[in-house]
Nucleic acid binder design. Structure first.
Lengths: 232, 232
DNA sequence: AGCCATCTGTGGTACGTACCACTGGCGGTA
DNA sequence: TACCGCCAGTGGTACGTACCACAGATGGCT
């Protein structure tokens, strides 16, 4: 469970903080270490985590204080399904196309494979409460993932890869642009032609630094919003 | 300069890594500590920073290795000017409006002030190489920043606040949407009406957790792209 | 040959100590 | 009263030590 002391302490402090008011002072690092029977280094590690989440702020020579609550938590690496669930929608997917093709130069470099490698191309319409939100196209190496069960393709792809292939996505790069949708896209998304949409290009990496998937999502501008927190 | 040992070590290691190949092994933590005459804790701290930037990866029981270069650096908190400079453009701004108004409920809550507080409202057209890219509206408390020199308003606002008021923005939240531009906006940005644009709502915080500014930027969809790296 | 216990070395966690940079208040001085 | 220097206390950096969890190699056993 909470096998690490700094994690356990972090939880306790986070609970305390939620009952405190902004600018209220926390105990000093030395006091925390003594009270919770840990070293000061461990206490500092717990505080550091809270600091990175924007829950507290420290001033040298003065002390540590609970931050103002409007500072929200840092954005995490969430899948589309997970993302929608936290917003209160019921996510689903409608499979539009699932085919194999040979990688051209663009897709090969994006996926970090040789041109000519066989790829999966999966096109899906992502829905929230059965209303279309995103039009998504994903490419993966067919050599690395030979057996893609189509039954999985109506759920969360990243969760499927996690369970069936043990692949953990730990990092992703995203480029976000605004585009006007074309006729076909407008029909699928249920919006008027030339409506504004977010085009998200995403490359996902596993813990060895290799590319897991490359994909493009076209999200309805009126329904989808991308929020993030930037620091330092 | 590099007053901290872990920073100095981090620089040295980063230089070394740039001359190494992916998956090549770094010295062990104990070797690093001995070679560079630091404690293992300090060596770990330098490695930790490199890890967070995606330059290396560590495997318990095995070692530490240079990561694949396609993993780019994590997105930082950059101003528009800074951002454009790194992309090779020459940033500038054209002042469209600078006025004072009383905060309504929406702007008051966004800025964390009382309704009725006097605010600056600054509307600017942000240019790259003299071509319009972004239409930007910023609100700041006039009580906190009473003397906004208009000569500053053609440059970087955040840099101006840093130098004139000593305010450091350390955190910002952003919400990104796609919208179709209206007639006036299209004219200012030099695009056709109803073109797609990125609407970025941004709230900037200083190191005390107070809001420094709240603003909305409307960026040309064909020229501006928002890239970020998400982890964990 | 094949298997399994053992050992070695790795990164990860945790401890206690020491010193530094900085803040804020205390008390003395002009 | 106003000012200034001192000082205790704070968070920040750095050190050395100890132990743990894990992967991979070693070597003996069946």
């Amino acid at each position: 469970m909470d096998s690490y002391k700094h994690e356990a302490l972090r939880r306790r402090l986070q609970a305390d903080i939620s009952r405190m008011r902004p600018d209220e002072a926390l105990p000093t690092e030395r006091q925390l270490a003594q009270r919770y029977d840990v070293s000061r280094a461990t206490a500092r590690r717990a505080l550091q985590a809270l600091r990175e989440d924007g829950l507290i702020r420290s001033v040298r020579g003065v002390g540590t204080f609970v931050a103002h609550p409007r500072i929200t938590k840092t954005s995490a690496l969430t899948s589309f399904s997970e993302d929608l669930r936290t917003r209160g929608y019921r996510p689903s997917a409608e499979l539009l196309a699932a085919e194999r093709l040979e990688a051209d130069l663009h897709h090969a470099t994006a996926l970090g494979v040789d041109p000519g490698t066989t790829l999966h191309r999966i096109e899906r319409l992502r829905l929230g409460d059965d209303f279309p939100i995103c039009l998504e196209t994903v490419f993966l190496s067919a050599e690395r993932f030979p057996d893609l069960d189509e039954s999985l393709l109506t759920g969360s792809l990243s969760e499927a890869l996690q369970t069936t292939h043990g692949v953990r996505v730990v990092r992703a790069t995203q480029q976000i642009r605004a585009v006007n949708v074309t006729g076909r896209q407008a029909g699928l998304l249920g919006v008027k032609e030339a409506s504004a949409a977010l085009l998200v290009r995403r490359t996902a990496f596993d813990d060895t630094g290799h590319v897991v998937e490359y994909g493009e999502s076209l999200c309805r501008g009126d329904l989808y919003e991308f929020s993030l927190v930037v620091t330092k």
